[in-house]
Amino acid sequence: MFKQMKGWFALTVILSLLALGSSCGNKATNEATPETATTGTPFTPTGKEGTVTGVIAYTGAAPAPKKIDSSADPVCGQSNPNLSTEDTVVKDGKLANAFVYVKDGTTADGKKIADYTFATPTDAVALDQKGCHYVPHVLGVQVNQKVKITNSDPTQHNIHPTPKSNPEWNQTQPNGAPPIEKTFARAEVLVPVKCNQHPWMKSYIGVVKHPFFAVSAEDGTFTIKGVPAGTYTVAAWFEKGGPNGTEKTMQVTVPASGSGKADFAFGEAATATSRPGGLQMMPAIEVPMIARH
């Protein structure tokens, strides 16, 4: 009998290792290549930069926000009695919290945007925990730019980003604790942030190499400033629609000191078009971001 059991035990161990191996295998493919290029041409504005502007539309009926049950922490209910989900914030058919950024492209003098290096801004981007949700819900930073995280609630939170290319961390921030300042060393769109104390709390940080990004406002509009003349792939990311959100891209040409337009649409059967600016048009491609784990 012992012999038999030994055999089974060995089999069990082998199979469980295999199971573990197979599940870990997926992770390895997610490893991103380091991309903080230290070599390249430093980007210097010429004063003839333009902008990319647009509106993010949401077609069809938007799902109603879901009410959050915050009874596990009474402080949350007191400070924010109408706490609800913020994944699809739509007003008059326009979508807030879409992250728009220059993904790729070539400047007018023929250089790839990826070959430039950009100075890291010295000012920090704010992320507050207020009324048991994150303000803002979506934000962008440049690689190595500081994110300053504050807790305005009379309760404790923990901030737990779960990036794929940057190191994961988890830090408790009790009420009254000083701000936490963190940076992300690699570009990653987007890093999800959660609070394990209050599991409904979610935020997304877009980490980009350059400063050419924006988040759509409540009326769906956005403006990316300081873009050198050139032709670019502009991407818009929306939280829903796939395990890691949905990304749509389009080609936009920015004239010197002018403006390129990039209107996107999400929601039911949405197809976006890039409108005038007298420029190249290309239908947006919808990429459910499954491969981007």
């Binding site: 596990a72 922490d73 009474p74 402080v75 949350c76 309760t155 404790q156 408790t172 009790p174 394990n196 104390q197 209050h198 599991p199």
Partner: peptide
Amino acid sequence: SNGQVFPEMVGNLF
């Protein structure tokens, strides 16, 4: 837990 033996057990810390 949060530097304490008996922290305030609110939210998921419970």
